[in-house]
Design a binder for these strands. Structure first.
Lengths: 221, 221
DNA sequence: TGCAAGCTGACAGAACCCTGACAGCCCGCG
DNA sequence: CGCGGGCTGTCAGGGTTCTGTCAGCTTGCA
């Protein structure tokens, strides 16, 4: 587990590092706002602990920029005592939790653990096969890291194929899933849908097993 | 393997029990929502089959409560035919798979197996005879580890021979299985099919017992 | 040797799937 | 309210792959 601790008070930063490492995390610290923003934007952390008062760039601004840029890692914000407005702003900016200073290290570690656990559960909402990733919560699809616009129906199709990534899914089953058989659609509706999707995705994503059905390539080699 | 089948229709419940036990599972049934929730929350099952319409507590609510409580066992949801919104909700609530009612018991058993296998971390349902392996999920064939392209009909033929690996299968039976006897085919269709397959597979895979039928070499001989 | 069962290659129709075009529908916007 | 635009189902027109049939051939057996 990799943690970034952003804190410009050197003594607190050192204490954080000590406590979190004792708890089994790999810890990096950073005391400058701009550097922190850059690190969080480019590196992969399982958790970020973020103080709000920082040189060169304010903590809240950093957080907002991360979130705007789809950086989803859990962020625990450290706020000054009594400044509860900061907390509201923090939540708005996309913080997952906050802790008023001063705090006891045990509490911080406990919250850190809880956040990581929670984000692990949340991660199951987004799954990928091959170069394709979809996030069930945000109803978003990305291919090789690039976000890709899909319609609701397209998403449901991909979603179903993803759920059954380890097998070839027959068209009847897909039709059943997409429409429910109360309304009968021409089988061609599915083919058209697949064609449109393939045009977006390019080749090598949705495969056809002639006579059986469709599947996601790279599904369970 | 221990399975909990939650279903309030007694006849279906009995069928479920019969089919799953025939497949080698240990089955407990439950017809009440609240009881089901309690069982799933306290007992350890390898799989839960969950009907959505239940007395006292709805299936989706049960599932959500389990998941909220970190109960991770695979859950197969039975939904009413055509009510596909239920399925989407089911997935959101944490179902691993769903099956629209009415369903064929064989399909349910197959999915049950797949789910248990997946949760056990293993990948695919493949079986082999001699040097030939086929994967019923991915509809793929491999010979001596090398993947081999087959058509749908060829696959079904191999599949049937593999299922009956321990005996010689008469051509009439194969014809019946492949085509259903409503449409009559020349017997030669089967011979042509076998010939094509043998050309792909090479010698020593499909054997002939003149006057009796075909078999997979290495099957029981 | 003769017969029946099984094998094979060629081929054309069938099945399957893909694609582009189009039209109806819905929804937001002016 | 009309308009435009995005989403989707339908249709028609292919292209490609399968596969049943046919005719002739080989093999096994009496």
């Amino acid at each position: 587990m990799r943690v970034l601790a952003v804190e410009d008070d050197e003594r607190i930063a050192a204490d954080l590092k000590t406590a979190l490492e004792a708890a089994g995390f790999r810890v990096e610290t950073c005391s400058d706002g701009l550097d922190a923003w850059f690190l969080g934007d480019t590196e992969e952390y399982d958790l970020v602990i973020l103080d709000l008062g920082l040189p060169r760039m304010d903590g809240l601004s950093i957080l907002k920029k991360w979130r705007a840029n789809d950086r989803e890692m859990p962020v625990l914000v450290l706020t000054a005592r009594g400044a509860w407005t900061e907390r509201v702003e923090g939540i708005d900016a996309g913080a997952d939790d906050y802790l008023p200073k001063p705090f006891r290290m045990e509490e911080l570690v406990a919250r850190a653990r809880a956040l990581i656990r929670r984000s692990a559960g949340r991660a199951s909402a987004s799954q990928s096969v091959g170069e394709l990733t979809l996030d069930a919560n945000r109803m978003s699809v990305s291919l090789r890291g690039m976000p890709l616009a899909t319609t609701a129906l397209e998403f449901r199709l991909l979603s179903y194929l993803m759920l059954h990534r380890d097998r070839v899914v027959p068209p009847t089953e897909l039709l059943e899933h997409l429409y429910g058989d109360d309304e009968s659609r021409e089988a061609n509706a599915l083919e058209a849908l697949i064609a449109r999707l393939r045009r977006k995705l390019g080749p090598g994503i949705i495969g056809t097993r002639r006579g059986f059905g469709y599947f996601l390539e790279g599904g369970a080699a």
